[in-house]
Design a protein around this nucleic acid. Structure first.
Length: 499
RNA sequence: GGCGCUAUCGUCUAAUGGUUAGGACAAGUGGUUUUCAUCCACUAAAUCGGGGUUCGAUUCCCCGUAGCGCUACCA
């Protein structure tokens, strides 16, 4: 049975890098008909953020990542917990960690360390000054039973608690067989005597991750590359407990455009911000999946089911990709074009309302036809808020804009007057895009006009903009919202602007 | 400083012990077009450096360089 997990710290927003780790774990689990567990690693009490778990699950769900076990979102929107290996919150598993450190201590595989922070700092300073690797000097590793007791008494007198350190083997090697990076060998002698249990009674990541992955029966650990150097410590812990370790797959990190580790400092990395700014979940997932993974074919567009179908850990490459949103924009506009009208409309309504457009006063066909025109031109949904106002309100005309470059004001005015007659004579049934185009073109050629000298002023009269959809599209759309009069009013206003 | 990982167009990447080193995004040019967008065509753009192995290396090996990660009672 394949069981993997996503195990974030509840530190607030969801980082793009976390999304990628979660996505790869999710794809791996689904591809193999395995289970994906969501465990929360809140062993650092200083970094906890209220509501982070709820936010995390919501964001994950929005992009289509669901968890089989651990935390999930209930019908009523609150956070629930399910699964037979809980609790899935590390701060609720303290007794398990304590029990296991005690076992290690009893077996001589871990020991109490009474060294003060000041002593440790001093030690590190000395070592750095001598250009030696900063490492605990194992001062407490060989304390006699009597010394341990004496220290304990002193500590309890002042209300302090010792930490517990792992007694790392002094020789030999530890070998990682990574599913992505291959074989990596570490000399045990360079490994520090890692703290397992902190003085506040909480475990460190190293202890908690090993104990939890074991008891939650995790078969594959998929996590970021930054964990490679601690993996030998984890492997040694599995050994100390006489447990079978899971398989490891370390993912290359995602980088900023300047090649530093992807961070909040350099622009958006919060998934919720991308969502809020009009990026579609499908685009985000497609894009993030391609950061380090590639199907080895020329297919670029992938739906979640296709990703699940084709995902393969072996196709992840080892070099760290740069998070560059150029291609994300392209993917996003691709997915926007494919959006179902109802979905697009539902997304557009709040954006328009925010711009004080009374959406409910207009027929749905009108709104849909606007969206149908605009969706071809969007990189992000949020752009709907900018530059669609003219569909609803009479535009203002900038000086000279109504005049085609190869023409003059008098000509523009004359053409608009002719157009006025044209629209007055037009049958109501003829206000559809294709008929309008045929009729207008016929009108132009019968009068011996230039296309531009008629169509440019018309388009500007309808939109008030230098750049917009074409006049046939615009007239057909405006008819749905403002009828013939609306179109005539705009042409009239344009004529008076030219007078 | 120590340990580790990585290295193909600007970016995401493909490929191979022998290829004109392929695709996509972005860029540029041209075409379509009333404008913008779309669309179409085209152009420019890469194997980090040095050794070795080999008939032949971008591919395998070593060294160097660079970047990144780790080096906490953070995760």
């Amino acid at each position: 049975m394949i069981r993997t997990r996503f195990a974030p710290s509840p530190t607030g927003y969801v980082h793009i890098g976390s999304l990628r780790t979660a996505l790869f774990a999710f794809l791996f689990a689904r591809h193999n008909n395995g289970k994906l567990v969501l465990r929360i690693e809140d062993t650092d009490q200083n970094r906890k953020v209220e509501g982070a778990v709820e936010n995390l699950i919501q964001v994950m769900r929005a992009v289509g990542i669901n968890f089989d076990e651990g935390f999930y979102l209930k019908e009523d929107g609150s956070v629930g917990e399910r699964g037979e290996f809980g609790p899935y919150l590390q701060s609720k598993r303290l007794d398990i960690y304590h029990k296991h450190t005690e076992q290690l201590i009893a077996e001589g595989k871990a020991y109490y360390c009474f060294c003060s922070e000041a002593r440790l700092d001093e030690l590190r300073k000395e070592q750095t000054a001598l250009k030696k690797p900063p490492m605990y000097d194992r001062h407490c590793r060989s304390l006699s039973a009597a010394d341990v007791k004496k220290n304990f008494d002193e500590f309890s007198a002042s209300g302090k608690k010792p930490v517990v350190r792992f007694a790392t083997p002094l020789e030999g090697q530890t070998v990682i067989e990574d599913l992505i990076y291959g074989r990596i060998v570490y000399e045990n002698k360079i490994l520090d005597d890692q703290v397992l249990l902190k003085s506040d009674g909480f475990p460190t990541y190293h202890l908690a991750v090993v104990v939890d992955d074991h008891f939650m029966q995790i078969s594959h650990v998929i996590r970021g590359e930054e964990w490679i150097p601690s993996t030998p410590k984890h492997l040694l812990l599995y050994q100390a407990f006489c447990w079978q370790p899971p398989k490891f797959a370390h993912l290359p990190l995602t980088l900023n455009p300047d090649k530093s580790k992807l961070s909040k400092r350099q622009g958006d990395v919060a998934v919720e911000d991308f969502l809020k700014n009009g990026y579609l979940p499908e685009a985000l997932v497609n894009f993030v999946a391609f950061l380090g993974w590639n199907p080895k074919t020329e297919q670029e567009i992938f739906s979640m089911p296709e990703l699940i179908e084709q995902f393969d850990l072996g196709k992840i490459n080892k070099a760290a990709p740069i998070f560059d949103t150029n291609k994300l924009d392209w993917l996003n506009s691709h997915y926007i074009r494919g959006l179902q009208p109802e979905v697009l409309l539902a997304a557009a309504k709040p954006i328009w309302s925010e711009k004080n457009i009374a959406v409910e006063n207009y027929p749905v066909e009108f709104l849909n036809s606007i969206l149908n025109l605009e969706k071809e031109r969007l990189k992000k949904l949020s752009q709907l808020g900018e530059g669609t106002g003219y569909y609803f309100n009479q535009p203002e005309y900038e000086n000279g804009l109504l005049i085609w470059k190869k023409s003059d004001a008098a000509d523009a005015k004359a053409k608009l007057q002719k157009l006025q007659e044209f629209f007055e004579r037009l049958d109501d049934k003829e206000f559809s895009r294709d008929i309008l185009e045929t009729k207008l073109k016929k009108f132009i050629s019968e009068n011996g006009f230039d296309n531009g000298s008629v169509l440019w002023p018309l388009r500007v009269a309808l939109s008030g903009l230098e750049k917009s959809p074409g006049p046939f599209d615009l007239a057909a759309a405006l008819y749905l919202g403002h009828r013939r009069n609306g179109i005539l009013e705009r042409i009239n206003a344009a004529i008076s602007k030219l007078s």
